[in-house]
Design a binder for these strands. Structure first.
Lengths: 337, 337
DNA sequence: CGGAGGATTTGAAAGGTTTCAACCCGACGG
DNA sequence: CCGTCGGGTTGAAACCTTTCAAATCCTCCG
């Protein structure tokens, strides 16, 4: 209805013929102002196209209704599902959620974290590139922060994550049950704690079954994407058939799907020639042409729980850090049947 | 290094023994302050753990360095790819990008838009639930706004989108070339302009080839997801084989993938029994077990272009709205071969 | 008709930063 | 030795809201 310069409460007050305080009351405690005045003020707001200036509000009131989730990789459906879980838990409480993406880059992550801190957001959820980064401690001095899908061993942060060791155990036990005795673990880089833990769990199951440790080979990949899975598939296919693993346990579903595609392209049958287990159970896993056996993490629930922890940390003065661990679950499908 | 109460410029000034204005200069025009003073101030900042209050900065300075993209559906890789394109274009200019997700819900979209407006973000990119919503016009009165992956017919907004009619034509021409004469268009709901346009293009190709209009059947779905694709697959499979289409052209890749899976599960061979064409060419399309023929949209480029338009709208006083249209391209793969 | 008490409304102060005109001071030219 | 110049520095004003104690208005009771 109007031009460039934005109307302020003052303008609205003038237009409605009331004082500044009354306009603010209409905005924040509408019950305290008489119906007729309120109507007049609201009309004036519409006429002038008034939009509350959140910066000023926040500056004075000192609180923001903003949460943020700094995600590692938007392109991985696992993280977008977690984000939806978070959103579910926050929309009830009329908090709004902003998503940022670090794209696995520590510098970008740092940039986002520091901007969020400057914005004085209520709290931050983050799946960090490196959970041990001292930057996280620094942020937490001012801003509630919860780690998602990762943990530190100590009690220094709230976190919500799945038990990766247990997940690895489930995956490999399943393959052992299916009679496999030469298995590849496909994943990397080893700098990721998660990649190591998922392997560790697998190794334990392997050892418990009394199998030859050397028959569980680690095929290391550069990252955790599709393309990495395909590349690993080629390497696997290149192995002499005597020593070639009959099953692959992958550090996540993207890798598993890449591997699956490569296997099919090169004429292998899944699961007869190569059984495949993924990790995360993203929707695309069930929907793959050979539906993928995968270790399911409760992604939505992970997000919801993390959001709850954050809200508690932000609002409850007696908050103590809590490390939630979710138990994963094996979903058997055609790729190992 | 310190406790609850946050240090302000004033505290820093006191600690460093300088005036308030000098601290601000260190922050904003470091060249104007002598090296020794600057060092002293910076040390004080570190000691006190000073974090600039962005609300106050923005309130006074009047400008924010924030952009936001309100996306329709985080779970659709198409949109996350667009988001990455946007991010590419913005990170150069030290703008930071926040992502919001409307999840196809007009009310949530409205909430996000209005909050962003209140935050006085520099500009908003949005893939709206309904491009004709008057809310968009209202927002644009105050805040630069660019429509992504949709357009209005008129000149009222900047937008960047692909030519959906042309895409539909490509898809159907391809199927005609492959000898199909009974084709299903799978997609919905029809309230989406995009769903209609992609069909429209297909119809034109169909008509140009002089084929019977009734042989291009519209299998309508409730939404554009995986599950919708599977459901459509079941309906297709239930048709008597005489009239059953030999090919499906899907409104997007998620539907196509769902359909593909359903087809394979029910024992059909793709493409022999059912050829499938998708739309968008998301990464999962190429990686499906039967790699999917799809109409590629330049997703990253779409994002980048939209971001450029937005920056221009936000900074160039002589800005005129521009509607960018990208030409899609057919990528033929095994699912139609 | 006076006054009590509750419902409304008012207006100034405060919140942390940036901006900008004014000020200070040492150096340099004359 | 004076005047000027310019780099550094200062401090008050301004940005827009919210908050809160104080003022005002009404209604009702005695």
């Amino acid at each position: 209805m109007v031009d460039g310069a934005r109307a302020s409460v003052k303008d609205v007050a003038a237009a409605a013929g009331v004082s500044l305080g009354t306009v603010s009351n209409v905005l924040n405690r509408p019950d305290r102002v008489s119906a007729s005045t309120r109507a007049r003020v609201e009309q004036a707001m519409r006429d002038l196209g008034f939009v509350r200036n959140e910066s000023a509000r926040q500056l004075r009131a000192g609180s923001s209704r903003l949460l943020a989730y700094v995600m590692l990789d938007v392109s991985n459906p696992f993280f977008t599902d977690v984000a939806r879980g978070i959103e579910q838990a926050t929309s009830d409480r009329d908090l709004s959620l902003f998503l940022c993406t670090s794209d696995n880059d520590a510098a970008r992550e740092a940039g986002h974290l520091s901007r969020l801190q400057q914005q004085r957001v209520q709290g931050i959820l983050v799946t960090p590139v490196d959970p041990w980064s001292p930057l996280l401690d620094e942020i937490q001095r001012n801003t509630p922060l919860v780690i998602v899908d990762r943990t530190r061993g100590d009690q220094s942060f709230c976190s919500a994550a799945a038990d990766d060791v247990e997940g690895g155990r489930l995956a490999v036990e399943h393959l052992i049950d299916r009679g496999h005795s030469r298995v590849a673990y496909v994943g990397g880089p080893d700098t990721l704690g998660q990649v190591r833990e998922r392997l560790e769990g697998g190794r334990r199951a392997w050892a418990d079954a009394g199998l030859d440790p050397d028959a569980l080979v680690h095929v290391s990949t550069a990252g955790l994407n599709f393309a990495d899975g395909r590349a690993a598939g080629e390497r696997l296919a290149g192995m002499p058939s005597r020593t070639r693993p009959t099953a692959a346990y992958c550090a996540n579903d993207l890798i598993a799907l890449g591997l699956l595609q490569q296997a099919i392209l090169s004429g292998q049958r899944v699961p007869e020639d190569l059984a495949i287990v993924g990790f995360d159970d993203i929707d695309f896993a069930a929907a793959a042409a050979v539906p993928l056996t995968s270790v399911r993490q409760p992604r939505r629930e992970l997000g919801r729980a993390a959001a709850r922890l954050l809200v508690d940390e932000a609002t409850n003065p007696e908050h103590v850090h809590e490390q939630l661990t979710f138990t994963p679950e094996l979903v058997a499908r055609a790729s190992t049947r």
